[in-house]
Design a protein around this nucleic acid. Sequence first.
DNA 1: GTTTAGCACTCGATGGTGATGAGTGCTAAC
DNA 2: GTTAGCACTCATCACCATCGAGTGCTAAAC
Lengths: 344, 344
Amino acid sequence: MLSDRQKLILSMVVEDYVRSAEPVGSRALSKRGEIQLSAATIRNEMSDLEELGYLDQPHTSAGRIPSQQGYRFYVDNLLSRREIDKDTLSVLREVYVEKMTEVEQVFHQTAILLSQLTQYTAIVLGPQVYQEKIKSIQLVPLHERAAVAILVTDSGQVQSRQVQWVEDISTDDMTQLVNLLNARLQGVPVANLRSRSYREIANELANVMEHCENAVAMLDELRAAVEEQDDRLYVGGTNNILAQPEFRDVDKVRPVLALLEQAHSARKLLATGGKGVQVRIGLENGAGPLQDCTVISTSLHVNNEPFGSIGVLGPTRMDYARVMQILDYAGRTLTRGIQRAEAD
Amino acid sequence: MLSDRQKLILSMVVEDYVRSAEPVGSRALSKRGEIQLSAATIRNEMSDLEELGYLDQPHTSAGRIPSQQGYRFYVDNLLSRREIDKDTLSVLREVYVEKMTEVEQVFHQTAILLSQLTQYTAIVLGPQVYQEKIKSIQLVPLHERAAVAILVTDSGQVQSRQVQWVEDISTDDMTQLVNLLNARLQGVPVANLRSRSYREIANELANVMEHCENAVAMLDELRAAVEEQDDRLYVGGTNNILAQPEFRDVDKVRPVLALLEQAHSARKLLATGGKGVQVRIGLENGAGPLQDCTVISTSLHVNNEPFGSIGVLGPTRMDYARVMQILDYAGRTLTRGIQRAEAD
DNA sequence: GTTTAGCACTCGATGGTGATGAGTGCTAAC
DNA sequence: GTTAGCACTCATCACCATCGAGTGCTAAAC
């Protein structure tokens, strides 16, 4: 276990380094007044901290920087929970005071907001429609052989697909089809469209109307639409990462940007399920391009069900306290807002 | 007017420079065999071309690079319309052979595809729902006081918004409302929702039912949804731009990325209206961050109406012929595909 | 035992120097 | 009109000395 003095020095190193991006020397800490020790003493402690794995030294005769383990300890034990600053708070309040009817829009705005506030890159993952229940299915004919199929879930999310019929279909048939689908599918989780109930419906359809293959294909299309939309991912402020000194080297940034462009890679970075703010430092994000990055994220919950997540990606040298506060606040406000909108 | 020899030399310089990203020297051209002249002669011609403004010299005793004017002349007059290469063609065919029912998905895929094929950054702007006509309006109740309003246009695009009622509304009222709206609004351009017909409807509603403010507010919400969605912009391969030698400097890339993140700035880059492939070189994109970039784009048309546009952003040192071919092909194929889907 | 001053040492960063070579412009010969 | 020859320019690179921040260690002070 670290002594109190070691903890103090570690957190001073972390905070200094986060501000300056320069290795922190013993003399600099000694002069800062928060600690009444000579540079030599601090040097000894730093040497110990390095041996314990909490600090790194880029090269002999440079100052120290926190190691991944150092950041981890700092986040877990030393983080000073200072108040969220007023300017930030007022910006957050201003945005979330507006009514938030359109989920998609809110998530998009949140990505922009988070990136602006933190000056890092924001990643927002929309809720998984896949887990919601079907509220209604609608069919809007476009021409004789084409229509738009619309699926509404109980949280009010809408998915749609154009469908083509192989042969003409009468308005009556279509009404009958819609009625049947609604009667059988209301309340069914969208995910089930692929399995059991899906086949039952198919059989039943075959009894009621001709050309039911079309209707079956339609359900399949809707399910596909939902699956695709489930990757609904918003990334904001990618360019912010370029402002960080550790990413001045293009070869370092490019893999990170490339990863963010792949929806399936990016979504893996975010917290899933668990409550509270999650911090993943360096290699904890999985080896590779993100070894110098930290992702802080929190997942949203509505009625105790996961409802997307929001996160911030920056260098490991990140203002942990501030970002965690912002995410915490944004997460709770968003959750409340959505819950209220649904309860209305 | 340039002599044939000058044209040949200019295009050799452009093509060499596009390949190598290094200033092109007279000796290098002389040795390439396509021209039977000594380095000295070519030097004289290059000197003339520089005086005429078609070539630049980074510093004395460096080779020449094309000026913006040089690229412009090359694109307008010298571009060799060689065949699109087979590999590229087969990739394009493969993607667009799949049926393209979902407009949104196709545009998204196109952004990814274009960036992969060209190794530049792709920008795709979806069609303006705003200009289409209303096909149908639907209302799906969620709770007593909340519903999802859905608007379908004649091209099959779907927009939706959650709406809240101030007071409970009966199912009958809702049905009546939907019927009225459909009767009055079918065929009306979405854009008109804000103006004339919108007020007429409001008055008529006041006669038929109570609490019509809710319905009026709903129409307003739908219009807002459409307006927001009109910024539907897909950007693919932003990281590709980092691979270009002229953008190894982070300070050069960052403004470009920042611009691409702002939907309203990015959409300005693309061709609007006119048919055919458009090339904007350097400052032609408007002064500022894009002075070393070229945007090649083409707008799509369905039934002679504009239907979004697709474009590629790269350094001015760009493979013009190839990108123009790819965009031309993709544009025509997309248009055909969408038209067919609608005609079915 | 803990803290501190003193000092030699390390190592990256900075800046100046000279060699190298690609490429030019000019002149004179073909 | 074309080309060979040549002096000149200038970016790039390797090399080297200098500088200074920061360390580790030792011995003295508390």
